[in-house]
Design a protein around this nucleic acid. Sequence first.
DNA 1: TAATGTGTGCTTATCAATATATACAGGAGC
DNA 2: GCTCCTGTATATATTGATAAGCACACATTA
Lengths: 129, 129
Amino acid sequence: MRIPVQINESSAEPLYHQIETQLRSLIVTGQVAEGTLLPSIREFAADLKCSVITIRRVYQDLENEGLLRTRQGTGTFVTRVDTDDREEYKKQIVLEAVRSLLDAARSVGYSPEELKALVDETLRKEERK
Amino acid sequence: MRIPVQINESSAEPLYHQIETQLRSLIVTGQVAEGTLLPSIREFAADLKCSVITIRRVYQDLENEGLLRTRQGTGTFVTRVDTDDREEYKKQIVLEAVRSLLDAARSVGYSPEELKALVDETLRKEERK
DNA sequence: TAATGTGTGCTTATCAATATATACAGGAGC
DNA sequence: GCTCCTGTATATATTGATAAGCACACATTA
């Protein structure tokens, strides 16, 4: 199974953290179902063009959070998915991004109106794709 | 002069990078004017509760970009401000944030309508402050 | 059932980037 | 001169990222 993770080369956010955040999101939102066998660390590393160690760290961190279960010689599986706070989690993710957008806009002195216009315009462009 | 830089402790973005990005933005957008004497590295470091070295790195990087000029014993000044691409720069900053918001929304399966509603709601809340 | 092949994850050794504390050195002003 | 402000250099710890090889699990097959 292929896991849709996007690496942003130019970001200052550490590689392992980008992968970890996105994979966690995929699991918690249910886009990668409970019981799923994830790609092996080698396969995933080759896919993302990074080191095996980096993937291992991601799997290990998420295992410590209780989202994954790893067995040597076998692979890494998705375990628990708490569907209760799934919607809440999703909203948090988006709200976080909205807040950082507002910060950015304020930092360069964009008014709420200008910002709203820019968001609307971008949304329209996206829909046309 | 006090420089309004906000450190996000919980972010994975390196400290020096957070400071650098925000200070660059303040200079390029003209919120910190050409000729301004910035706080000394010690003063700034104390303000942000970080190491002197970290501030020095920021000043040095921005000096290499041509935005600052440093003289030992005297301090660090804002030099050039290219007002030509100021508006363009501002828009880029905001657009970048809009894009990452769209990414976040898509990654958790938020529809454009839901997203727009959330943005509007947040903007309204902000205005009431 | 023992041997082996090929897939897993794991360990070690290493390097680069980030961040720090502490001590050094130059300029301004009394 | 001295003193007190600047930035600068050195040495060190911590974290992020890598390569190469070790160890376990399981299926195949002699």
